[in-house]
Amino acid sequence: MRPFAYERPTDAATAVALASVPASAHVTAPVQYKGGGTTLIDLMKLDVMQPTTVVDITAIDDEAMHRIVPSDEGLRIGSLVTMAKLHADPSVVRDYPLLTESLWQAASQQLRNMARLGGNVLQRTRCLYFRDTSYDQCNKRVPGSGCAALDGSNRGHAVLGTSDQCIALYPGDWAPALVALDARVEVLGRTGKRLIAFADLHRLPGTTPHIETSLSPGELITAFIVPGGPRRRSLYRKIRDRESYAFANASAAVAIELDGRTLRDVRIGLGGVATIPWRAHRAEGMLRGQELTEANARAAAEAEFGDARTREHNGYKVVLGKATMVRALLDAQAMEVPR
C-alpha cells in the first residue's frame, strides 16, 4: 500500500472541503472517503486505488447520517448506517423486506458490521482483471488499455448494459432493491445539497468505464430516501454458487401489489447480471395490470433479457437471470404478508 494522509473530520462540511479536489472522476480522485473501508482498503492493498489522502467519515457527528427515520416523504436512511444495523431494524424488516433481505444475504456478518450504506452502493466491481494490476488491459483501471475480460475469464461478467470497452458486473445486492423502489440519493457538495435519482447514480460503462457514477469529485452521499411504502409484499432472491458469503450469480429484488392475481404494481431490480443496478422497466411494463402467472412472468423475463450480450463463459447468466426473476415474482405472490 502506498503511503497516504489520514483525516478524520467530525463534520460533513469539513469532509467535503477536504475531498473537493480536481479529478476526472469521483472514484479516481486523489482524496477518497472511507466508510467501513471494506472496498477501499482492499483496493489500496492491491494497488488498484492509490489515494494520497483518505478521509474517514465515520466520525462525522451529524445525527441524520447515522439514523433510519420513517417520514412523510418515505424512509430516510443515513449513509453512515451500517449494513448490519439496517437489516436488523424490525420496522424495516416488516415494511421493506427487500431492503433488509438484500443486505442480510450480502457479504458476511463481520463485513456488514463494518460497511456503511454510502460505501455499499459505491462498492466496485469484482472483475478479476480490474482487481489485479499485473494485467495490462483494463479500461476501467487504465483508460484506453483494453479489456482483458472480453476474451478472458468472464463467467462472472455482465450480460446487460455492457459495452465493447467494459463488461464489468455491478456486484452489490442492496442497490437493485433501491433502484426498484425509485429511491433518491441526498448528496452534499461544496455548493450545498442536491437530490439525485438512485437510478442516475451509476453510469453505464459506454466508452468511459472509469467514470462509474454521476457524483462529482468530493461529493458526499449523506442519505438515501425511499419514497412511498410500506412495501410488504417484496423480497430479494439471490442465487449464488454457495449458500452464504458469495456474490450473486443473479438476483432479483421485487415489490408487487396484487388485486387477486392481478398485478396492480410491480417493481423489479436485477443484480448479478448487469453493469449497473438494473431496473427491469421492460418486464414491469409487460406485467403491470396483468395476471401474475408463471407464463406471463417468463414472457416478461424473455423481453427484459432480449438485448443481453453474452461472452464465452457467461451465457448461463441469461438463462439464470430470467429464472431468478420468475422465481422472485412467484415467491412474492406466494408470500404471507402481515396486514
Partner: peptide, 25 residues
C-alpha cells in the same frame, strides 16, 4: 482454480473468488 486459457494464468486467486463450502453449505 479458473485458468485464463489465453493468458495461461490463474484468475480466481483469492478466498473471495475461489469458493469452498461454508457452514451454511
Amino acid at each position: 482454480t479458473e485458468i485464463d486459457e489465453k493468458r495461461g494464468r490463474y484468475v480466481n486467486d483469492s478466498l473471495g473468488e475461489y469458493l469452498m463450502a461454508v457452514n451454511a453449505d
